[in-house]
Simulated assay, not measured.
Amino acid sequence: MGILGGIGSLAVAGQQQTFRLGGEIAARIGQEPAAIADRENPPLELTAGVEYEITWENLDGQPHDFRSWTRTGTNSPRRRRCPSGAPRAR
């Protein structure tokens, strides 16, 4: 699942942008902001120099990986493992 894509610039330089996502085996579901709400596997366009907070809620209690790719398809070195168990925000 890549997180870069074409939903337009969602952040203004110097501000923090927050994304909320819900994770299920079938798809990642956008929750906030409104531009990604209720969308399956919404692309997140990130801008260099802007700080982002991504909150992931495990909706099905299964383990999930959260990875990111650059626009050219290069895998980011950052990878987060979302544990199984009771759904919770991460």
Rank of each mutant, 00 (worst) to 15 (best):
M1Y: 05
M1G: 07
M1R: 05
G2N: 03
I3E: 00
I3D: 02
L4A: 04
L4I: 07
L4G: 03
G5N: 10
I7T: 03
G8L: 09
L10C: 04
A11R: 12
A11D: 06
V12W: 07
V12L: 10
V12C: 08
A13D: 09
A13G: 05
A13P: 15
G14C: 13
Q15V: 12
Q17K: 15
Q17E: 14
F19V: 04
F19Y: 15
R20C: 03
R20I: 02
G22T: 01
G22E: 01
G23I: 00
E24W: 10
A26M: 09
A26T: 14
A26E: 11
A26G: 10
A27Y: 10
R28L: 12
Q31T: 06
Q31W: 05
Q31F: 04
E32S: 10
P33D: 04
A34R: 05
A35W: 02
A35V: 09
A37T: 01
A37Y: 00
A37L: 01
R39V: 01
E40W: 00
E40A: 00
N41Q: 04
P42C: 03
P42Q: 02
P42T: 02
P43E: 01
P43R: 01
L44T: 00
E45T: 11
E45H: 14
E45C: 13
E45N: 15
E45G: 15
E45Y: 13
L46R: 10
A48T: 08
G49Q: 03
V50L: 10
Y52I: 01
I54G: 08
T55A: 10
W56R: 02
W56I: 14
W56Q: 01
E57S: 05
N58F: 09
L59T: 01
L59Q: 06
D60Q: 06
G61P: 06
G61R: 06
Q62V: 07
P63W: 05
P63Y: 08
H64S: 09
R67N: 11
R67F: 10
R67P: 02
S68T: 15
W69R: 14
W69A: 11
W69E: 15
T70R: 13
T70F: 14
T70H: 11
T70S: 15
R71M: 14
R71H: 11
R71P: 05
T72R: 04
G73P: 08
T74L: 09
N75L: 14
P77T: 08
P77A: 09
P77G: 07
R78D: 09
R78P: 01
R78E: 07
R79Y: 02
R79F: 02
R79T: 03
R80M: 09
R80I: 15
C82A: 12
C82R: 05
P83G: 13
P83M: 07
P83L: 13
G85D: 02
A86W: 07
R88W: 00
A89L: 05
R90D: 12
